[in-house]
Design a protein around this nucleic acid. Sequence first.
DNA 1: GTGAAAGCGCTAACAC
DNA 2: GTGTTAGCGCTTTCAC
Lengths: 303, 303
Amino acid sequence: MRIVAETGFQPNAIARSLVNKETRIIGVMVPDISNNFFSSLINGIDSIIHEWNYSLFLAISDEEVEKELKYLRLFKEKQLDGMIVASIHFLEQHKHILAENQIPLVVTGHDLPEFDIPTVNVNNVQAAYDAVSYLIAQGHRHIACISGPLWDPPCGLDRLGGYRKAMRAHGIPIPDGFMAEGDFTAESAYEAMGRIFQAQQRPTAVFVASDLMAVGAMNYLHDQGIRVPEDVSVMGFDNLEIASLARPMLTTVHNDPFMYGKAAGEQLLKMLRNEPVERRSVVPHRLVIRKSVSAYEKNRTKE
Amino acid sequence: MRIVAETGFQPNAIARSLVNKETRIIGVMVPDISNNFFSSLINGIDSIIHEWNYSLFLAISDEEVEKELKYLRLFKEKQLDGMIVASIHFLEQHKHILAENQIPLVVTGHDLPEFDIPTVNVNNVQAAYDAVSYLIAQGHRHIACISGPLWDPPCGLDRLGGYRKAMRAHGIPIPDGFMAEGDFTAESAYEAMGRIFQAQQRPTAVFVASDLMAVGAMNYLHDQGIRVPEDVSVMGFDNLEIASLARPMLTTVHNDPFMYGKAAGEQLLKMLRNEPVERRSVVPHRLVIRKSVSAYEKNRTKE
DNA sequence: GTGAAAGCGCTAACAC
DNA sequence: GTGTTAGCGCTTTCAC
């Protein structure tokens, strides 16, 4: 024991892992770590697994199918104890690798109705429905929508679906050109907003499928001299830091990625302890009312 | 060989690592992954090590000394091939562990003059000097500064030093209350800006030590009805995405964390190949002129 | 060429 | 309790 201290002995975790068949490492795959949504998600995961002495192996997929598959294989090769995968494509090959891997997995940003994989998500259509209903309750009737990419079922399609559902439920028709697709970057929303404003009718409010895109949309309006919320109201989605950094502060749907991460981490830890897990966790959402949405008045003055 | 395909054999990287004494994993430690600076840094690292088939082990230190030390030890225990460490404290204990670890290391966000560890940094004092000189060249004389935390030598102290040096070089005295300390959060800068505006004199320009803080400062001004840049000019530092998302768009110092990450990754890869490395890489900076700084005119009109 | 054996640093299972 | 040994799944070496 004295010798241990003297020689500065450090145990070798690799050798231990080989015997124990346990690395105490969790693999996390995200498409883009610069996006605050995913970095907060990772923070949430880390906050919970850190307590249980697990660490993070980070895989950045860049939305490239090749990298997704590569990392999925690598997770197995490195014998990681579990993995959390966010917003990847879900092709046959993915399913195939996953089926072979047999390592505990939690998926977020994807519903997997046909699979036995635990998922954690918000109810995207309900959240979008609530957001648009709020706009309608504020008197708006001309409401446009900037959606996420339509190949992304939960965050692209579902949020658009919630928008349409709310409009339909209130008997409000959606004019041509009121729906534009973005790719969750601010730039894409800036352009989408431009396309919407080329339509015949002008919206008095816009529902945007992410806060970052909402800021892009607001910047378009700002650069055109259109005031928010006096001339048009903007509703975001996610409640990232940027929502309270923007001026006017963004009214948005709270969809805390940190909580997502925590929930996903907790589910995964349960699996690692062989405890029963929920097949589908849905994390609650709520509206955060700030300054970017105002009530619509029929005969509004131009000042 | 046919059997291999049939049984779906996957090699075990753990066993291989034990023999080869090589894990092909790089440890990266950052204080806060939600900060876009560090997430871009990680992206930069990944972009370069990915090509060489290394992967990332992520350690989030939360600025806590305990976690820093824990992860430094863990990096060794897990036999990682190399590590990149950003903006941590640098106490005796850190140096002690590092000395024992003997695993290739690159440090960023720290100058280590007394050590033989490769670092990559900007020249913070020169960059701040250039930024403030630009403000002066634009006719400003009443220039305040919101610095980072003073316990952070390169990003806190050095940038403040560059500000003072520029003021001194141009023979401009710094009034009491013109220097306020933030902690790199938008909120801290919001408050710091408030403190500065309680001073006897009001500045016509502010140099802020990070973009995120600059946005916080601009938000204070916005909320007080003070216009940027008409009433006061704001200069940022870093050139993060938020600098071009802000309105007015932020004039700032380009200090690309992605490039930092790439440079750090390249240095580390050289060490892993036993090639000679530069002891100190300094990545170039430059001014990015946008909209948040305007020329100061003596008799400016109030409209 | 192809095949057997040693050993990486640890843990677990056994003997004493 | 303390000491010895087998073996985790690979790579490397050495014999054939």
